[in-house]
Design a binder for these strands. Structure first.
Lengths: 222, 222
DNA sequence: GCCTATATCTGACATTGTGTTAGATTTATT
DNA sequence: AATAAATCTAACACAATGTCAGATATAGGC
């Protein structure tokens, strides 16, 4: 959790597992909804607090009750995406079954999440450019995968399943490729073809790490 | 040339092939120098016209004599880098000699340029986030390579040198990888190790396109 | 239904940086 | 010295931010 997002908080009436959201929870959700709705169609650079809060149906001052600034809001949106990506990546990381198959499943999940939340990834990476703290959050997010992937590669190298090479630079490059590709393909309308994107990433990852695995199905392109 | 950069221009005293720069040429160069100097160490988000022109030794108003805004300036800086990259990429594109060797040379040149001008690439890609016109320029820059690479792949596929697959998505992914990797590695201090970056890119590109080529030298990492 | 804490609203403010302009002044060139 | 080009100063309007005080509304417990 990135902690960037939230300012002074008041009592936060936690009425048990209330089926209904408290007033402040609803307001907060309305702001996040409005932001998602906006960013699905328009770039972060055009987002202003005033317009956002008009959509959210509250006053500009209220925004600052819930977020320090727009970058804090973006950090919150990123947190939402994190989970989906982390769990989607499990098949390969979990190290059960055929590694190449696991990698394939992980990539498929990554592309699925990317296609759904790509606009958030784009907005966060755009916003990170303008704010040192958010930039740290964003790079921490990607950097975490750098380490996981490098370690995963190293383990299969120890088993002789992957050729011996220094894994960390390769991991970094592949992860940047994924991030940039998802953002390019799904960061804004019009969306690219999911299958084509998946096929490309699969080809590159598998060729690099498990070159003896036959590339399934769409060998001839989509 | 991106045309974004320049505003109203006056007479532009061209005194033949003058060995010395005219006054306006010197001012313009001073601005660009100051920008490069700044961006080598600090991110684009911290660049302001006032501070830039203090370093350049001219008044704030003068800036607007030469550039429409900071994004225009960035477009100009990008133009400088373009050339180096395009010529560096020749070996593979030119299609003489062993393709895998050509690719290797092209990648080496790319990494060399990246290590030198990476901070400009980072600054431009950061700035592109904030300005629709510059964003177009930046994406056009990368998109141009997407097409070149896709065509180059298609040609070797026709010769049976590269496995058959739909080239454009792969080209896009590999190019995004290169851009993001160079920016990550060399976009700001501290700089990454050139050799390690080159080895990683080489491995990925060659595995994907020419998998039967033995990976030279640093197979075991550096 | 009342009361109180919580949340919100309005309207204003100072701040920062942008891009433009007018008119005076410097500098280069011939 | 004369002229044109380049620069300077100083001011302006503008957009957006983040903050604040005080008035007002609203939810939920009693």
């Amino acid at each position: 959790m990135s902690d960037i997002g939230s300012p002074r908080r008041t009592h936060l009436a936690v009425t048990g597992l209330s089926p209904r959201l408290s007033k402040s929870e609803r307001t907060r959700a309305a702001i996040l909804d409005a932001a998602r709705e906006f960013l699905r169609l328009r770039p972060f650079r055009e987002l202003t607090v005033a317009e956002l809060m008009k959509s959210a149906g509250a006053s500009r001052a209220t925004f600052y009750q819930y977020f320090n600034d727009l970058h804090g809001l973006m950090a919150t949106l990123l947190d939402e995406v994190k989970e989906g990506i982390v769990t989607g990546a499990q098949p390969w990381f979990s190290e059960v079954g055929d590694p190449a198959q696991g990698l394939r499943h992980s990539l498929a999940a990554l592309v699925a999440v990317g296609a759904e939340k790509g606009f958030i990834l784009r907005a966060v990476s755009d916003a990170a450019t303008q704010d040192a703290r958010l930039e740290d959050v964003w790079e921490g997010f990607i950097g975490a995968f750098d380490e996981l992937v490098a370690e995963r590669i190293a383990r299969d190298q120890a088993l002789g399943l992957i050729a011996p090479f220094e894994p960390s630079a390769v991991a970094r490059a592949l992860n940047r490729m994924d991030a940039a590709t998802l953002i390019q393909a799904f960061g804004r309308p019009p969306m690219a073809d999911r299958g084509a994107v998946l096929a490309a990433l699969e080809r590159i990852w598998l060729s690099t790490l498990y070159p003896d695995t036959p590339l399934s199905g769409n060998v001839q392109g989509r």
